[in-house]
C-alpha cells in the first residue's frame, strides 16, 4: 500500500515574501521618539529645497496641496524589526518637487522641524521612490506619526522617512544624519539588513 505524503514544505513564510530578513509583521503603527513631538501649524509650515549652490526653492502648505499628488500603497520596515504591509498614503512625489530644481548633487540631507536629520543618495528620492506625504489611510497624518507632513521613502528603513519634514539640502558630499552619526547604517536597505554601520 502506497503511503501518500504531502511532503514537508516548511513553515509558510510570514508576509508572503514581503518581509525582509529579521523583520516581524505588526498591525499596529508603533511610535518611536527621539524627542518632543513638534506641533507645526500649517499656516507657518514650509518645505524648502536648497541646492549645493545655495539656491532655495520653497513651498507653503497651500502650494504643496495644490501640486499633483499620488496615493502610494507601500510596505514599511522599521529598523527596530517591525514591518507593516499595505499602508496607503497621499503625497507629492519628490519627482514633482525637484522637477525644476537645477542640481548636480549626489546626496540629500533631509531635515525636520525639531532638528532631526537623515541622509540618503539623491537618486533614492527620484523615479517614483519617495514622497512628501500628508495623509495616511485617508486621514491627516497625526503629529505623533510626523504630521503635518513626513518624508516617505519606503524602500529604506523607516528612520529615513523623516517625520515633520521641513526641507532637503542637496549636497556634493554625503553628510550623515541623526541616527547615521550614532551607529546606524548610512544607507539602510532592509532587504540587505543594513541596520548598523558595517552591516
Amino acid at each position: 500500500m502506497a503511503i501518500i505524503s504531502r511532503g514537508f514544505r516548511g513553515r509558510a513564510r510570514e508576509g508572503g515574501g514581503k518581509l525582509p530578513p529579521g523583520q516581524y509583521l505588526t498591525d499596529d503603527f508603533p511610535v518611536l521618539s527621539a524627542g518632543p513631538t513638534p506641533r507645526v501649524d500649517t499656516d507657518r509650515w514650509e518645505f524648502t529645497v536648497e541646492t549645493e549652490s545655495g539656491q532655495a526653492h520653497r513651498w507653503s502648505w497651500a502650494e504643496l496641496l495644490a501640486l499633483p499628488y499620488e496615493t502610494p500603497t507601500v510596505d514599511i520596515h522599521c529598523v527596530t524589526k517591525w514591518s507593516k504591509l499595505g499602508t496607503t498614503w497621499r503625497g507629492v512625489s519628490l519627482d514633482v518637487l525637484l522637477e525644476d530644481v537645477e542640481s548636480a548633487a549626489d546626496y540629500a540631507l533631509v531635515h525636520s522641524y525639531g532638528g532631526y536629520t537623515t541622509n540618503l543618495p539623491l537618486e533614492d528620492l527620484l523615479d517614483g521612490k519617495a514622497w512628501i506625504a500628508y495623509r495616511y489611510e485617508g486621514e491627516e497624518i497625526t503629529p505623533a506619526h510626523g504630521g503635518p507632513a513626513r518624508l516617505l521613502v519606503p524602500h529604506l528603513y523607516f528612520w529615513k522617512s523623516a517625520k515633520w519634514v521641513r526641507g532637503i539640502r542637496l549636497l556634493d558630499e554625503d553628510w550623515p544624519g541623526f541616527w547615521e552619526t550614532a551607529g546606524y547604517h548610512d544607507y539602510g536597505d532592509p532587504w540587505r539588513e543594513q541596520r548598523y554601520q558595517d552591516d
Binding site: D28, V31, S33, P36, T37, E137, I141, T142, P143, A144
Partner: peptide, 10 residues
C-alpha cells in the same frame, strides 16, 4: 492611526 501620541520621556 492606532497608536496614541507618545510624547513621554523618562
Amino acid at each position: 492611526m492606532t497608536a496614541p501620541a507618545q510624547d513621554g520621556y523618562q
